[in-house]
Design a protein around this nucleic acid. Structure first.
Lengths: 206, 206
DNA sequence: CATTTTATGAGAAAGTGTTCACAAGTCGCC
DNA sequence: GGCGACTTGTGAACACTTTCTCATAAAATG
């Protein structure tokens, strides 16, 4: 088995993957480290260094083949397959997530959508039927869900997280502002746009 | 004027700010580096190191006062005031953003919401009236917008970005998958949940 | 077919970031 | 009032990251 990547490299490779996925979608066949670096907001040398650690993927004078580089990076990150995720909360944010092609493009299949509101259970969002949130744990096990997404009101967040944990989910993406408590082997990724904005603003103001 | 922070420190301070803001909301008065570190997924020593660069904010044996630390970090990041943002796209994602309290909690005021669909212009979302996207540039200048958010379909993204740039916006948060071209002095932050998921998954799979 | 342009790959050095280990300050309890 | 549990702040070691530079290779040009 290969060495474990450091946080920084893994984060950048994920970014490159996003850029390549979109480039391929737009019909581009070849891309240079310069172009990747502009979209990723990093130094071109760094892109080449990140890639050359794992092999010689580029052609001098030409650049990188989009398709082949994409496969290479997927190999490095072991994320080539299809992964199932469970979405809790079918409100505006939940609906936006289900109907977005972003997830499918990157190999994520939304296996189920849950909501607590009895009026909404059975309703359709995108291609999915909203299921009762009471069954989260059961259904997550059935469906082999690896990743849970919380798009619920703050006051339901901890409860929903507990259900996902009970269903064996080890990674939770938390779109609420709530600070969640989970067992040690579960990782919470809290997504708060305001946090990133404060960060962006700092570099603008200085 | 103080030194410019490095990317890493600024990112972590923004995270601490989010954690502190929420802790205060939950009525907590005091917090330890240990607690912060658990929510931020970092080492406790790093939290203390990050903070001690700027002064001695904590009390040995006790921890940090939530209110006072919050003010200190806001001071370091120069982000204590209220900042105006413009939102383009009043679909599911746009609506989720307008109705979320996350932005207000961190000092961001949504100054205007735009959409291209004539049927939706004039409609209300949250406390705001949807305005015609044709007026983005004009209204952004009027309102002193510093930050634009793109929550539009991919095919409108470049057009909307151009309007925001014309209105003087220097920071754009791009929630679409589109790779955008903008002048050098404009920074694009592309938000793609799938990218972060691939990254999270890597550490789970290894 | 020689020349120019473009772009990668890697050595080496400078620059940063992270973590350990521990001294020192604070509080509550008996 | 003193003891023990807790928690910050920091020197020093270590590890990692980033960038500069240039050799090398492929393609385009005339």
């Amino acid at each position: 088995m290969s060495e474990k990547l450091t946080l920084g490299v893994a984060a950048r490779l994920s970014t490159y993957l996003r850029i390549l996925t979109q480039s391929r979608k737009q019909g581009l066949q070849s891309i240079s480290s310069q172009e990747i670096s502009e979209y990723a907001n990093v130094n071109p040398t760094q892109v080449r260094r990140d890639l050359s650690t794992f092999g010689k993927f580029g052609k001098r004078g030409v650049g990188y083949n989009v398709d082949s580089l994409l496969n290479q990076i997927q190999g490095i990150l072991h994320t080539g397959g299809v992964h199932s995720l469970a979405l809790v909360g079918a409100g505006n944010l939940g609906t936006a997530i289900v109907t977005s092609s972003i997830f499918k493009d990157h190999g994520f299949g939304i296996a189920a959508v849950f909501d607590r509101d009895p009026a909404r259970i059975g309703e359709k969002v995108g291609d999915l039927i909203i299921e009762d949130a009471a069954n989260i744990a059961l259904r997550c096990k059935e469906l082999g869900v690896v990743l849970g997404v919380l798009a619920v009101p703050p006051e339901s967040a901890q409860w929903a997280a507990d259900q996902l944990v009970a269903g064996g989910t080890k990674i939770i993406f938390n779109y609420t502002e709530t600070l969640l408590s989970v067992p040690e082997d579960v990782t919470i990724h809290t997504i708060n746009p305001a946090e990133e904005m404060l960060y962006a603003l700092y570099f603008y103001l200085t």
